[in-house]
Write a protein that binds this DNA or RNA. Structure first.
Length: 242
DNA sequence: GCGACAG
DNA sequence: ATCTTGTCGC
């Protein structure tokens, strides 16, 4: 289709915001938000860790059993990026590294949860949607702050939520994942519905603010950056305690 | 022009 | 995102 969208790892660093915007508009046409059909057996969390003032990127995905939410494997890749962080274009900074992380996984997870948004995005193309379309995987987003849209504050108790709308349409949920703590922003990425994203998010919440997939992913990439975990694909023995 | 603004 | 200690509140 578009050579500029086919090889992110070799082109994204060179893009201008205008070109990136065009790519998002093209990818949006391939977005699928129909209900998930097959059952979920595994769910992965995706995240990256950066060193201050460095272009080095420590990217990773942690695969958890579902609905048990026990880490069973993880994939880590050290890479680099020069694309700056620009609100609305996070995907261009993080996706090249995450694609390498994903390719390294022998048995792909049924769902991937990103530390960022799905369709809660001006052009409905947040990092989760972008990655989902590129790889035709099932994805969703869980952001810690609002990027766009309007919403009413959800109740203060764990499990309460409200709708997030933009230009008259519902594009996500504001979920209180823990009592008296700032809510998280949930939205489908690709190959799942709005309702699916909320249902899955609620099943991934334990005692912490962040759902287990992204919470674990964040923990692992940080251990990777500090040298406590090695690059590559690793399976976690059932005897291991985490 | 002003305010908002994922990680 | 990352750099960092204690501290206030459920």
């Amino acid at each position: 289709m578009n050579s500029i969208t086919d090889t992110p790892e070799s082109n994204y660093d060179m893009l201008t915001i205008t070109e990136a915007t065009l790519i998002q508009k093209n990818l949006r046409e391939q977005l699928n938000l129909k209900p998930l059909q097959s059952p979920i057996r595994t769910i992965a969390g995706a995240d990256i860790s950066l060193s201050l003032y460095s272009e080095t990127v420590y990217a990773g995905m942690v695969i958890l059993s579902f609905p048990d939410l026990q880490p069973v494997a993880y994939s880590l890749v050290k890479s680099s990026t020069t694309f700056p962080y620009v609100p609305g274009f996070l995907a261009f900074r993080e996706i090249p590294s995450l694609l390498k992380v994903y390719e390294q996984i022998p048995v792909k997870p049924d769902v991937i949860m990103f530390d960022g948004n799905g369709i809660i995005h001006t052009r409905r193309m947040g990092i989760a949607s972008h990655f989902g379309v590129l790889t035709d995987s099932v994805t969703m987003g869980c952001a810690k702050k609002k990027l766009t849209g309007q919403y009413e504050d959800p109740g203060e108790n764990r499990g309460e939520y409200s709708l997030l709308t933009d230009k008259g349409e519902t594009i996500g949920y504001v979920l209180r994942s823990k009592n008296n703590v700032k809510p998280v922003f949930i939205s489908p990425g690709h190959n799942m519905s709005l309702d699916d994203s909320l249902n899955i998010a609620m099943k991934c919440i334990n005692k912490y603010r962040l759902p287990e997939p992204t919470r674990k992913a964040h923990e692992f990439v940080n251990l990777f950056r500090t040298g406590e975990l090695k690059e590559g694909y690793h399976e976690i023995g059932s005897l291991q305690l985490f």
